[in-house]
Design a protein around this nucleic acid. Structure first.
Lengths: 203, 203
DNA sequence: CCATTATTATGACGTTGGTCATAGTCTGCG
DNA sequence: CGCAGACTATGACCAACGTCATAATAATGG
């Protein structure tokens, strides 16, 4: 009721959001529709009303939402870079740091929902697989643009963005399995110089 | 019966092997015990006999097997490197190539079983999660040793191995979602120079 | 105030999954 | 032969899931 800064979300939005949360914690198979409704504090009857396409539709929307969320993180972290030190390595470190904090704060309960959908549905439901592909694209696109803005040559922006997302995704996987953030920090430290070197080659 | 080069596997081994195959294709949740027995052409009754610990035990053994399999791949590809060009980038490219061929040959049906178990069970069954962690360690260890043998300083062997596994794992995820191997080749190409540069710094 | 639509409530159906119980078959050895 | 032990066969149980059918309630606009 109280209309503060954070706007109030509709039940439908909450369900998509909750689906993404549960999926990235438990996987697609272990996430039930009833669980989603309960987690979103939304009526169960609304499921078939808002998502007549069933679970496939809900999973698809959840992963799409996750892709846009990741993209927002990129542009936000780019904007937050200090004016006197805007190197690609700083952007990558900031992104890794955000995931790292999330791991620590939640005791490694959450992974990436896009990864979860890919692993669980890549060979089953094609709609979910293509949604995951779009989510990855939606994530890499602003990242490539950010790299170019930071001085990386156009030709390498996209490939380095792919490398960044790959490393982040893999390190997140390892960190979650090991319940230890060292994989994340290692990737950030090792990849930083490579990213900054790409700026120099523009010369 | 006929004792040729490929030895014959026991029903128990076949079930562990089949479990890994099905898990990396469909995920842990979507892989049923009955499916595993059928895929292994093993009697269903043997499940409770060989795996009294139930599905958890089977999943754990499958991911452990996968870790050892990945480790074997590393040492084998290291040994197969040409004598006149033994750079870390060649080893990484060979590993990536193996996954790439597998993706293409199976129309991107399979991912990594360790990733699947991590995504599906990290927050549920702790035994599976620790098994996945051990599998990652079992994979990285010979990789770090290989890098050192190729001239990488001891201090960086482990961290670069982590970076390699992370990138490979993440690129595999993206490639599977996109049904396109470009993420895998990109990672291989971009990371190669960095790996070789680590040899030079030994000077 | 009514009618039409949007939303929510609830129970049931059919399937599938993991697990257990029980009994059967095979194997080797004394 | 006969009897352990290892292995296999099979059906039942219970819980959970996605989906559907049906009805009730709220919101909206004329």
């Amino acid at each position: 009721m109280t209309e503060q800064g954070t706007r109030t979300y509709s039940p439908r939005e909450r369900m998509v959001f909750s689906a993404a949360q549960l999926i990235r914690r438990d996987g697609v198979g272990a996430t039930g529709m009833r669980d989603v409704a309960a987690h979103a504090e939304a009526p169960r009857g609304s499921l078939q009303h808002y998502f007549p396409g069933g679970k496939d539709q809900l999973v698809g929307e959840a992963v799409t939402w996750a892709g846009r969320y990741a993209a927002r993180r990129v542009t936000r972290n780019l904007a937050a870079l200090p004016a006197d030190d805007r190197r690609p390595s700083r952007l990558f470190a900031a992104l890794i740091a955000q995931w790292t904090e999330e791991c620590l704060a939640t005791d490694f309960a959450f992974g990436c929902p896009v990864a979860a959908v890919t692993v669980d549905c890549a060979d089953a439901t094609d709609s979910a697989r293509t949604a995951a592909a779009r989510a990855f694209a939606c994530w890499r696109e602003p990242l490539a643009a950010a790299l170019v803005e930071l001085g990386v040559p156009d030709a390498r922006g996209a490939t380095l963005a792919t490398l960044m997302v790959s490393s982040l995704e893999g390190a997140l996987l390892i960190s979650r399995a090991e319940r230890d953030i060292s994989a994340l920090t290692t990737v950030s430290d090792e990849l930083g110089p490579l990213l900054d070197a790409a700026v120099m080659t523009a010369r």
